[in-house]
Amino acid sequence: MSANATCEFQAKDYKSDLKPIWCPGCGDYSVVQGIYRALAAIGRPPHEVAFISGIGCSSRIPGYTTAYGFNTVHGRALPIAQGIKLANPDLMVLAAGGDGDGFSIGGGHIAHLIRRNIDITYLVMDNQIYGLTKGQLSPTSQKGRTTCTSPYGSLENPVNPLLYVLAYGAGFVAQASPTDLAGMAAIIEEAIRFPGFAFVNIQSPCVTYGEEAQQIKGLKAISENLSSLGHNPADRLAAMDLAQHYGEKLHLGVFYRNPEPAPTYDALIRERQAALSKDAPPKERILDLFIKK
């Protein structure tokens, strides 16, 4: 895991000139720092990276990098990201967004990217609140939480993002947090390097609307490193067991890493293209298909 001193790119090469609009103290400042560092460690030139997001505070993140960014519409980072990866599998494709973007309005997409196993890294900055619209209930808000749309307390159970993606069979599932920047950078790096769909839930506190217990101090108090618990990341059922504690404990590290990664959709596409293009007529002759003799 030692960093390569002759690395061609440094973290600052991935940092754009745009000034973040995030509130000072926001967890996302650390996340983007973690992403710069992960990208530098991997060393892929910024122009070969496509970074896609939806809508939300955290979805501003592609603009703060020097990669090709696409700040799309609410909940649709993943559909667009998969189109990019399938259209050009040579690109490194990252997707990011918040918990509302990923698990509410866009919640239907994750399952399908997972089952297709498209080689995309999906980073969710989970803060249990809608920040951009000023503090409404989010899909990961705890039951009973009071917000401006739940003044008498939420009646809903939260989504468990970790169990959700584990259940659908994601090949790489991890959790990180700004409480440990080094750990976060390492996890993001590992997620990007993983061949296949990789998911990292990042507990990134909202300094403006987040509850006290979900700020850095509170998170540190409930955080536990999965490796120090002796968790074996090849054990999916054990990962699911640990993931049950989402919301009570903050487990940091890799929950699950498929020891035998399945072939990716983008790789299979290439094989199919290669096989079928061998005897293909030129596209100028495609209408010959309609000749009836």
Binding site: A3, Q10, A11, C23, G25, C26, Q215, I216
Partner: peptide, 17 residues
């Protein structure tokens, strides 16, 4: 390299308001 150090003397992001 810079990749080896994390927030040694730099204030934590969380410290800003």
């Amino acid at each position: 390299t810079r990749a080896m150090i994390f927030d040694i003397e730099a204030p934590d992001y969380d410290a800003a308001r």
